[in-house]
């Protein structure tokens, strides 16, 4: 089963401040461990919301707003997509993320095509 680990933005990521060399190395090491275990499908870091655009759909009307956006905690700055055997395993991987300064992540399970098939029948 697949999970997406969503990483919440921080004032630093929103300010476009790059991680320190040691934080960067720790993250590299973590990603290597995910690859070694055969569980990493994809991961990316996102640019600050100042580079982003929001679109809101109301009937015929589409409202476009350019970043930056406020309420930093609701913004994202990156994600991992992993393929693991269980929710517990996904959590175990999350606990190993080398964060230690108030960062926040959110773990979400990904729909598989089979889930849609079941819904279609029901």
């Amino acid at each position: 089963m697949r999970f997406m680990i969503l990483v919440k933005a921080t004032p630093e990521t929103e300010a476009g401040i790059m991680p320190t060399a040691s934080a960067f190395a720790a993250m590299e090491e973590y990603n290597e461990a995910l690859i070694d275990a055969g569980v990493l499908l994809h991961c990316e870091g996102l640019m600050a919301s100042s580079q982003g655009t929001r679109l809101r759909f109301d009937g015929e009307r589409i409202t476009v707003t350019e970043g930056p956006f406020t309420q930093t905690r609701e913004l994202l700055c990156g994600f991992w997509l992993i393929d693991v055997k269980s929710h517990e395993e996904a959590l175990a991987w999350c606990r190993r993320i080398p964060f230690d300064n108030g960062e926040e992540i959110e773990l979400r399970q990904v729909f598989e095509t089979a889930d849609f098939a079941v819904n279609a029948v029901a």
Binding site: D36, G38, D83
Partner: peptide, 17 residues
């Protein structure tokens, strides 16, 4: 049964490393 596909693929990725 589908989990066997996932397991084999995961082991394959480990082996490739």
């Amino acid at each position: 049964r589908p989990q066997l596909c996932e397991e084999a693929t995961r082991l394959g990725r480990v082996l490739a490393r």
